[in-house]
Design a protein around this nucleic acid. Structure first.
Lengths: 349, 349
DNA sequence: ATGCTGATAGCAAGCGCTTTCTACTGGGCA
DNA sequence: TGCCCAGTAGAAAGCGCTTGCTATCAGCAT
């Protein structure tokens, strides 16, 4: 059937051990021998048996990348960047980096972690905000600790640090700071009645961005009506659309809306438009993340730019061990406020 | 260190064989015994060793999903849908479906295929258009044939059929028909000078959509100036922007632009706007695929809707063997023309 | 010559699991 | 009462690879 190491060995007239060493390149093999072996490999179209190899070597070349929603470019960009970085890495053997889509489901997150543990993955990159459920956090923490114990490198990307020392490195987005700067920008423009379309309640990302928003309001003495002006939803466009209608119902005099992310912001814009309100003429809108299409939207979206590609690529290198972990294991990735056309001063009523 | 099957067996006072059978559930085991084994598994926090298992059973539970660019929602949606379908599948054992991002690079495509072959993947789903390079096509075909020979199920999703019988099932998008209907729509509106922003030259998807366009023009007797009105680029927004500027340079009197996909179309809109031209007032614009944000764009984009999610999910089920292959192994997935605000009759000059 | 050393190559013992074949048990039936 | 069979469990032979250890050999110093 399929050629095995032994077949190659026989053809090259050497022992299986020698073939293995040629393939792994971590043991001296005479040039002539190597040559002969490689020729045999080629002639037989031999492909290493991964499972057998992993079993014998007690390691594998699999690297898992967990994302909440791969259809969302936020994750797509990070995951793609990580895979690119990993593909670039020159290790002894090429790594197989794979993206696992949890769909935001805690169970699937754990399932994937178990599946990766089962495969004895070389590294795991977990992206995106964490669920705030303590039980689930503990379960994930325990799972990661076990993985780390088995030699798997763990990298968190765009996720808050985890207690314990099982994580190799954490790249945390400064959601709080970004959220704060964004709202400060709006306040600076003169807005006083600012609505907030938040993400799902139980996510760290949601909370942190909202906390930044709140901090800015509090600093300006505007925090009183806050809660009435916050609506939670998911991270999709639909959610932004619906939330804005709800906000408008609660407070028709709103002059600005901050959204959980760009996608939500675009949904918000659509709702305002459908309501006959102009952006930013009647209501300013701001997003978060700065996805590729945000600069192209009409009007171009004011947002906080998160360097997704860079962060993803760095996570990939960290997973590979190709880059030293940041001091303390944690690096904070800051966002940059991008002021564009979707925000302006409130109409001087 | 990590618990093994033998440890579990010892603890449950049974043989390793029995533990294996309990875990795989394909052999009768007395309820009491099973119970005891499961308790031991739990107590020891045992996780199966995937490589060992795959080696012994000569199969693995890995399913690979190849995409050209995971940062593009076109692929994100399909891949996510496929993963969801696979996660849903109730096989004897949970499958690990993984997304591999080729970045459109033929070498990486082959590398991933080899890596998956190395892992003895249970199935491989290849999405997106193929490169038209005969050498590469042959290489991919050969690789897939080998995989199929080793028992790996092969599913093509959104990719033209491959000769030979190694492919389990093919879901081909009707790019030609969709392209044709789209251009017919424009012609029907009265457009005569229609520009076309095509994707990369060497891709099947590009060619098919363009052929549809050409067919519509030919049927209306408008094919004469075609070539001067076609500009090739990549599948991104930037490409649409630049291409429209080029088209306008070549033919300032253009009244409509058809883009390779929605992202490109949005770039095209941006360029027109920057040129002071209104959409669809001065120039109509149409896309392809119907990504989530296309309906929200301003103006909402006329496009050909491809059922990405459904196709991806079906590909997942086919990969699982949970759904019978379509007759002849090939199913054509048709697009639906979505007429929205970005297309209108040409200005009656 | 003799013994050393460094450079290569081979032997063989697993890695942890699956699965075939065999062995044992108890009950139903003649 | 004895036999057969269904139901269940175990023994053991690998699956294809890696790697520690040993064997070989040339060259060189003694």
């Amino acid at each position: 059937m399929t050629a095995t190491l032994a077949d190659v060995a026989a053809r090259a007239q050497v022992s299986p051990a020698t073939v293995s060493r040629v393939l792994n390149g971590n043991y001296p093999v005479a040039a002539a021998t190597r040559e002969r072996v490689l020729r045999a490999v080629d002639e037989l179209d031999y492909v290493l048996n991964g499972p057998a190899s992993s079993l014998a070597a007690a390691t594998s070349d699999l690297i898992g990348i967990l994302v909440n929603d791969i259809a969302d470019p936020f994750f797509g960009i990070m995951a793609g960047a990580a895979q690119a970085a990993i593909g670039e890495g020159r290790g002894a053997r090429e790594k197989l980096s794979v993206i696992c889509n949890t769909g935001g489901s805690p169970e699937r997150e754990l399932t994937y972690l178990t599946l990766l543990q089962r495969q004895r993955a070389a590294a795991v990159i977990v992206t995106g905000g964490a669920l705030e459920d303590p039980a689930h956090q503990a379960a994930v923490g325990a799972k990661l600790a076990r993985l780390a114990g088995a030699g798997t490198r763990i990298v968190l990307c765009g996720r808050p640090p985890l207690p314990g020392d099982s994580v190799t490195a954490t790249l945390a987005f400064d959601n709080r700071g970004g959220g704060r700067r964004l709202t400060e920008h709006l306040i600076g423009l003169g807005h006083r009645r600012i609505g907030y379309v938040a993400g799902p309640t139980e996510r760290t990302t949601t909370r942190h961005r909202l906390e930044g928003h709140r901090a800015a309001l509090a600093a300006a003495g505007l925090a009183n009506a806050l809660d009435a002006r916050v609506v939670h939803g998911s991270y999709d466009r639909r959610s932004g659309y619906d939330a804005v209608l709800e906000l408008l119902r609660r407070e028709p005099e709103l002059t600005a809306v901050v959204a959980a992310n760009d996608t939500v912001a675009l949904g918000a814009c659509a709702a305002l438009r459908d309501r006959g309100l102009s952006v930013p003429g009647d209501v300013s809108v701001a997003g978060f993340v700065d996805l590729p299409f945000s600069a192209d939207a009409v009007p171009a979206l004011t947002t906080v730019r998160l360097p997704l590609y860079e962060a993803g690529a760095r996570a990939g290198r960290l997973a590979l061990g190709a880059e030293p972990a940041p001091p303390g294991g944690i690096a904070t990735v800051h966002g940059e406020l991008m002021v564009r056309a979707s925000t302006a001063g409130p109409r001087t009523a």
